Simulated scan of single mutants.
Amino acid sequence: MPADETQTSRWNGPRGRSWVENRALLDDVMRPLETTLVDAVTAAGGRRVLDVGCGTGSTTVAIARQVDECVGVDLAEPMIAAARVRAAEEGSTATFLRADAQEHEFAPGEFDTVVSRFGVMFFPDAVAAFANLRRAVRPGGALRCLVWRGPADNPFMTVTETAAGPLVPNLPVSPPEAPGRFAFAEPGVVHRALDPSWHDVALEPVDVECWMPEPELIGYFTKFGPLGLVYADLDPATRERAVTAVRAAYQPFVDGDRVRWNAACWLISARA
């Protein structure tokens, strides 16, 4: 099954462009999680690494500093283009491939390790995707992925939909276990996706404090997440009501000039 057309159009359209345009902010927000994943890859010991769902390439470039080869793959052309510019600007050895990792024909055993920072939860057929990634890894190689735990563990991530839902018609929210940010929240779902093709699948809870400058908050929730997907199409009055309600709902996370929250994740480990 090819990549979901909705996901492809979103990431090659406004969502992908928003990530590129706000790369500096998102890099800073995600850096503590990036560090966690880079440390996990270093501990795994592989020298040839595939970074799945690499986005604009921050994690790929960080891993490339520690290994012989790191290839980032993503289906979003705007993000891959930005990643290539990043690598060139930083003199990185990282390289990038615009492809659907679920079905791309990687060379068998091409990599020692597959990694992902929140890039594997969007596969329309996770079993097929992880089987394909397994073929790309040498026997004995490693898988290391960060995915989100559930909404109850990540209240920061559900503020927008809770506050804006009553005000914005048809606010897009992914059902549980559907492709999306919480698709791998339940360990059983992870095992059903990985156990057919990988060995020694394990999940370790990881909690990391993230933050952003408070003046960036409104821009953040109007460009990303469910409100970001529809914000440009809302009439001015609905926009104003939604922004007022959502900003008020985020107040418990505001600490002076910063917004702070806990990122509750699983670090998935497996062996080829």
Score class of each variant (00 low, 15 high):
144 R>G: 06
28 D>E: 15
32 P>F: 02
183 A>V: 06
108 P>L: 09
222 T>D: 09
205 P>K: 00
252 P>L: 04
171 L>R: 11
220 Y>P: 01
183 A>N: 10
52 V>R: 05
21 E>G: 07
262 N>R: 15
8 T>W: 02
57 G>L: 00
66 Q>Y: 01
71 V>H: 00
15 R>Q: 04
171 L>F: 15
52 V>Y: 03
147 V>F: 03
240 E>G: 14
151 P>R: 14
34 E>I: 12
129 A>E: 08
79 M>L: 13
225 G>C: 14
149 R>T: 05
74 D>R: 05
47 R>M: 06
145 C>E: 07
44 A>T: 08
267 L>A: 09
43 A>L: 13
18 S>R: 13
144 R>N: 00
142 A>V: 00
176 P>R: 12
130 F>L: 07
59 T>Y: 04
6 T>D: 15
41 V>Q: 07
192 R>E: 14
28 D>G: 15
169 P>N: 11
51 D>C: 03
117 R>V: 03
104 H>W: 15
11 W>E: 09
178 A>F: 11
198 W>S: 08
226 P>C: 12
182 F>Y: 13
126 A>H: 15
94 A>W: 13
73 V>L: 11
79 M>A: 09
90 E>C: 06
91 G>L: 13
13 G>K: 05
28 D>C: 08
136 A>G: 08
229 L>H: 13
80 I>D: 08
105 E>D: 15
123 F>R: 01
4 D>P: 12
140 G>E: 12
98 R>L: 06
173 V>L: 06
268 I>M: 01
215 P>L: 08
65 R>T: 07
120 V>F: 11
179 P>E: 11
92 S>P: 03
237 A>I: 02
200 D>K: 14
44 A>K: 08
42 T>H: 06
137 V>A: 11
18 S>A: 15
124 P>D: 03
212 M>Y: 11
224 F>T: 08
24 A>W: 14
90 E>K: 06
46 G>H: 04
112 D>Q: 02
34 E>V: 14
244 T>W: 02
195 D>E: 15
93 T>N: 07
132 N>D: 12
159 V>N: 04
77 E>M: 15
213 P>S: 06
226 P>Q: 14
8 T>F: 10
265 C>W: 03
112 D>N: 01
180 G>Y: 05
253 F>A: 07
96 F>Q: 03
236 P>L: 10
